[in-house]
C-alpha cells in the first residue's frame, strides 16, 4: 500500500515559521510509523530529525503526536493509523528541530518529586523484605518509561510547564506506596504545591496516552487520597 505521511518540520536556524512536509512511500500494514520515518530519513530527506533509540517501546524516546494522539512511533502500526498519517512533536515543550523537543522542563518536574529510594534506617543483614502484596501495591507505576506521552497530553501542562504532570506524579506514586521507602511525607508535601497534584482535573488524557497502559488517572487518584487521609497502604 502507498502511505502519505505529513511531517511537522521546523529548523529554528533556517525557518521563519514551522510548516509541514508531505512524503509518499510504500509500506505494509505491519510497518510502524518509526519505520516510515526511518525510510523518509534514509531515502528521501536526510534533514528530517527525530529521536529514537531502542525502537521496541522501552526507552520512550520516540514519543510524538500521530494523527493527533500522543503515541510511541515504534509501537504504532500503519494498519492502525490508515494510509494518511500526520506526525507532529508532542505539545507543551519547545521544539528544538522537527520532531525533537526540549525535554528539560519535563525532567525537571520529574526530578522534583525525589524519584529515588529513601530509607535512612540501619541496613538489615540481608535485603529489605517486601511481601508480594506490598510489591503489587505499586506495580503498575513501575512500568513508566518517561516518554512524556501522558504529561504532554495534558492541557494544564500546555498552559504552564511548571505543572508537575502525570509522569512525575506516577513516579511519586511508585515510591510513596513502596513499603520500604521512608520519604512519602516529603513527596506528598511537594505534590501539595500550587502546581502539584491539584492541577489534575481528572480528564483521563494521560491514561489514554500511556503506551505502557499504566492506569495513570487511578494512580493520581490514589495519591490524592493519600494526601487527604494520610494512609499509604
Amino acid at each position: 500500500m502507498q502511505v502519505t505521511i505529513k511531517v511537522f518540520r521546523y529548523n529554528p536556524e533556517k525557518d521563519k515559521k514551522p510548516g509541514y512536509k508531505t512524503y509518499k512511500l510504500d509500506a505494509i500494514e505491519t510497518d510502524r510509523v518509526l519505520d516510515l520515518l526511518e525510510k523518509v530519513k534514509g531515502y528521501q530527506d536526510g534533514t528530517l530529525s527525530f529521536r529514537r533509540s531502542c525502537a521496541h517501546g522501552i526507552c520512550g524516546s520516540d514519543a510524538m503526536r500521530i494523527n493527533g494522539f500522543n503515541r510511541l512511533a515504534c509501537k504504532t502500526l500503519v494498519r492502525d493509523t490508515g494510509a494518511k498519517i500526520t506526525v507532529e512533536p508532542i505539545l507543551g515543550l519547545k521544539v528544538i528541530k522537527d520532531l525533537i523537543v526540549d525535554m528539560e522542563p519535563f525532567f525537571e518536574n520529574f526530578r522534583s518529586v525525589m524519584p529515588y529510594f529513601v530509607n535512612d534506617e540501619p541496613e538489615p543483614a540481608q535485603e529489605r523484605y517486601q511481601s508480594p502484596a506490598e510489591r503489587e501495591r505499586f506495580d503498575d507505576t513501575t512500568k513508566c518509561i518517561l516518554c512524556a506521552c501522558c504529561t504532554t497530553s495534558y492541557p494544564s501542562f500546555w498552559a504552564n510547564d511548571k505543572y508537575l504532570g502525570p509522569a512525575a506524579i506516577v513516579t511519586a506514586h511508585r515510591f510513596i506506596f513502596d513499603s520500604r521507602d521512608r520519604a512519602a511525607a516529603e513527596r506528598l508535601k511537594i505534590l501539595n504545591d500550587v502546581f502539584g497534584i491539584h492541577r489534575c482535573h481528572t480528564i483521563f488524557n494521560c491514561t489514554l496516552a500511556c503506551p505502557r497502559e499504566i492506569q495513570v488517572t487511578k494512580a493520581i487518584g490514589e495519591v490524592k487520597m493519600a494526601l487527604v487521609t494520610g494512609k499509604l497502604d
Partner: peptide, 22 residues
C-alpha cells in the same frame, strides 16, 4: 503488619488540598 500512615503535619494540608476536598 502495622498500617503505614503519614500525619497531617508531615504531609502538609494546605489551601489546595482543603479546596480540593471542599
Amino acid at each position: 503488619m502495622k498500617p503505614r500512615t503519614v500525619s497531617m503535619y508531615r504531609r502538609g494540608f494546605d489551601f489546595e488540598t482543603t479546596m480540593w476536598l471542599f
